[in-house]
């Protein structure tokens, strides 16, 4: 493989603590869970959205609706590359009038979030959209910022940040992978 693990920046308990804090911040910002909905971006964003919903339930005692967004058809680079796997988008709630929190694992260029915003708007007109990410690694190419961040991780453009989650990768960790030629 061309990549090797360079550093573990978050372990299981760090991820857990960050999600608990974000859940509290979301509820605080929304003044409760009323009118709140979560929308995770596949695949790891939807796992995180499910976990956040669980945390919100623990705090407020109510279940907030959770949806899943696949952005493949909204990418700005469809002409040059295709996602190998296209998943189903499933928004089981009407976004109209709700405060929808988009959830993703890593915020990088911002292009994924731009696509997810377009996808979400096709389902209705939310009263507001917030963004929660586990890791913000910088290098934005669009005027997009996160409202809730688990951890800011300054990176170089040559590195890769990988979020591993139990549901998809058998363990919880955030690691930085170094591209070959750097080590």
């Amino acid at each position: 493989m061309a990549v090797g693990t360079k550093a573990v920046v978050m372990d299981e308990s760090a991820i857990d603590r960050a999600l608990t804090r974000i859940a509290h911040e979301i509820v605080e910002g929304n003044r409760g869970a009323e009118g709140l909905a979560l929308a995770g971006i596949v695949t790891r964003g939807s796992v995180l959205a499910d976990r956040l919903a669980e945390q919100v339930r623990a705090i407020e005692g109510v279940s907030v609706p959770v949806g899943t967004i696949d952005i493949s058809f909204y990418r700005d680079d469809v002409a040059t590359r295709l996602n190998p796997e296209v998943h189903r988008t499933d928004i089981p709630f009407d976004p109209a009038g709700r405060c929808v929190v988009l959830v993703d694992d890593v915020l990088y260029t911002g292009r994924t979030i731009r696509a997810a915003l377009d996808a979400l708007m096709d389902y209705g007109r939310p009263s507001c959209v917030r963004l929660a990410v586990l890791v913000d690694r910088g290098h934005r190419e669009l005027p997009i910022r996160a409202d809730y961040v688990g951890k800011n991780v300054p990176t170089s453009g040559r590195e890769r940040v990988k979020v591993l989650l139990k549901e998809t990768d058998a363990e919880d960790a955030v690691v930085i992978l170094a591209e070959r030629g750097e080590e």
């Binding site: 058809f73 469809v78 002409a79 040059t80 590359r81 295709l82």
Partner: peptide, 9 residues
């Protein structure tokens, strides 16, 4: 989608 997407590279 599969024919026209990703066609440039």
């Amino acid at each position: 989608y599969l024919l026209l997407g990703g066609a440039d590279s």
